[in-house]
Design a protein around this nucleic acid. Structure first.
Lengths: 148, 148
DNA sequence: CTATCTGCAAAGATTTTGCAGCGTA
DNA sequence: TACGCTGCAAAATCTTTGCAGATAG
């Protein structure tokens, strides 16, 4: 949190109420809220912060690298704090929507090869895995095999 | 294309004009159009097909596995044909938006491990890489390091 | 024939923008 | 004090839905 303040200052951005409120919320919340979720999560304590500010703030925080944007297939952006040294990816249950995390990632094994072949400079990557969570596997119908 | 017709029939869906038009368009087009792009791409030949049908059709085609949805960080869904035996991922230029493809993917190396640890059943995965393309690296300003 | 599918239009959801006033540095 | 930032409300996108008529099988 102290590092976040310094990073913002260092890049020339101001330390404002909404920015600190949203950073604080993301630091404490479990899960991967979307813009609505952030708005709702801070609304009782900061009722004056509106959706427009939430969107502008997450854009800014993503730009400076303080948060990561998850682009999932149901087209709503979700956000999570980009904790230093933490590298993980997401596992999404297509039945109930639950999002789990996993740490294994061997992307660096192929990263250099991709840079050589494509001549892109690679900055970041996202790996999203879709499937069916233990609860949905056990309990209910398996929607993914319907109509076969 | 013949396989697509059979797959739809086999799963109990009808072979309709819009479905074949959209499949045909995705088969011939280069790139990764969004819904607007598909609508525009078929509009001269099929002016009666509207956006609602485009959305309903891509949902259906994705559900049966005939197309893949790309969820990119600029929150618009993009679509591409899921050609049999083709497994690739995407490299997105954060400066100009260009999308390139690459084939290397060693996800299967960790897939089983993730299934064991998380108890999810894994169906599919997407790997998106963000960076800066050769053209933007050579030519213009590097927006990703602005304000530092 | 009949259940599925489509077209249209309207609604819903999500995200962006303009502008005047506020507040950090 | 000055510029960046915010709040509000309105607009712009993007996507979904209801319903009546069309159509594949």
């Amino acid at each position: 949190m102290q590092e976040a303040r310094e990073l913002l200052r260092r890049k020339g951005y101001r330390l404002t109420g909404p920015r600190l409120a949203i950073l604080g919320y993301l630091a404490e919340v479990k899960g991967h809220p979307n813009a609505q979720g952030i708005y709702a999560g801070i609304h009782s304590e900061y009722p004056e912060i509106g959706m427009a500010t939430v969107y502008r703030t997450v854009d800014l925080l993503a730009k400076v690298g303080l948060l990561r944007i998850l682009a999932l297939k149901n087209n709503q952006a979700r956000y999570e704090l980009n904790r230093f040294g933490d590298h993980h990816h997401h596992l999404v249950c297509k039945t109930c929507g639950k999002i789990a995390e996993f740490d294994s990632c061997n992307f660096q094994l192929i990263s250099v090869e991709i840079e050589e072949v494509t001549r892109f400079r690679i900055d970041e990557h996202t790996l999203e895995v879709y499937g069916c969570c233990p609860g949905c596997l056990a309990g209910s119908r398996d929607y993914s095999t319907e109509k076969i």
